[in-house]
């Protein structure tokens, strides 16, 4: 269980409480500046809150050694920055760093899970945007974390690659990992998440299955947009008025 208790950080987060379950995909949604990335980073143990805190199975993240925290929580930022033109395998191997080993097996498994085995010897900067996104996710998977926290992992991808990456994340959740995603696309959150947290100006305003968290009233309240959902469950589309 990854939880936030009265998590506050300046104006960005105001007393957020939530408890996330492993084996599920949780989406964090909200308008620009709502505090989504801040919440994700605080729950990854990368930001020190002013008050409250995040806890992993009852232990405050601030009480965990950075390496122990790193073994259990994998974090994927929004930027696809790769400073040096290293081979793909070397990059994915960085995921093993918290474990202090160079085991080939989890690295191979992560490469295979994202269909990257043929790319293993390619240079990172020779990859397309979609390939880079998969390599960076493979880096997280190679660390075999219990939790995968990703900040807008779909932002730079075309529709095909977006669905591809969501499929890989679902597979990780089915294998038992807790997956937490900051998502801008409400349709993706509606169709692919098991649960949605809606943030508005730093406060948590909804925490429920997607149909309830992203109902028409909440969308109007939080995003200021009159919209309604059409289509069947799992294949819904958002139509604005």
């Amino acid at each position: 269980m990854l939880s936030a208790k009265d998590l506050s950080l300046g104006h960005r987060l105001k007393g957020v409480n939530c408890a996330l379950e492993p084996g599920k995909i949780t989406a964090i949604c909200g308008p620009n500046g709502a505090g989504k990335s801040t919440l994700l980073q605080a729950m990854a143990g990368l930001l020190d809150p002013d008050a409250g805190g995040a806890a992993l199975d009852g232990t405050m993240l601030s009480d965990l050694a950075p390496r122990d925290r790193a073994k259990r929580i994998g974090y994927l930022p929004q930027s696809a920055e790769v400073a040096w033109d290293v081979p793909v395998r070397t990059l994915v191997q960085l995921g093993r760093m918290p474990h202090g080993d160079q085991l080939a097996e989890p690295v191979d498994a992560a490469l295979a899970a994202l269909d990257l085995a043929p790319f293993a010897d390619r240079r990172a900067q020779s990859l397309s945007g979609g390939e880079t996104a998969r390599v960076l996710l493979a880096r997280v998977l190679a660390g075999e974390p219990d939790w995968i926290l990703a900040d807008e992992p779909l932002a730079a991808l075309d529709l095909g690659h977006q669905l591809d990456l969501l499929r890989h994340l679902r597979r990780a959740a089915d294998a038992g990992a807790g997956v937490v995603l900051v998502l801008h696309d409400l349709a993706h959150a509606m169709n692919h998440a098991d649960r949605v947290l809606v943030l508005d100006r730093g406060a948590l305003v909804a925490d429920a299955p997607p149909e309830r968290a992203l109902d028409d009233v909440t969308i109007l309240d939080v995003w200021g947009v009159a919209a309604s959902w059409v289509g069947k469950s799992g294949k819904r589309a958002l139509v604005t008025a």
Partner: peptide, 18 residues
Amino acid sequence: RSLDALTLGEPVARSLGV
């Protein structure tokens, strides 16, 4: 080793325990 982790930016390096 810590410099290697920085290849992916400072937040990732910290998330890897640096």
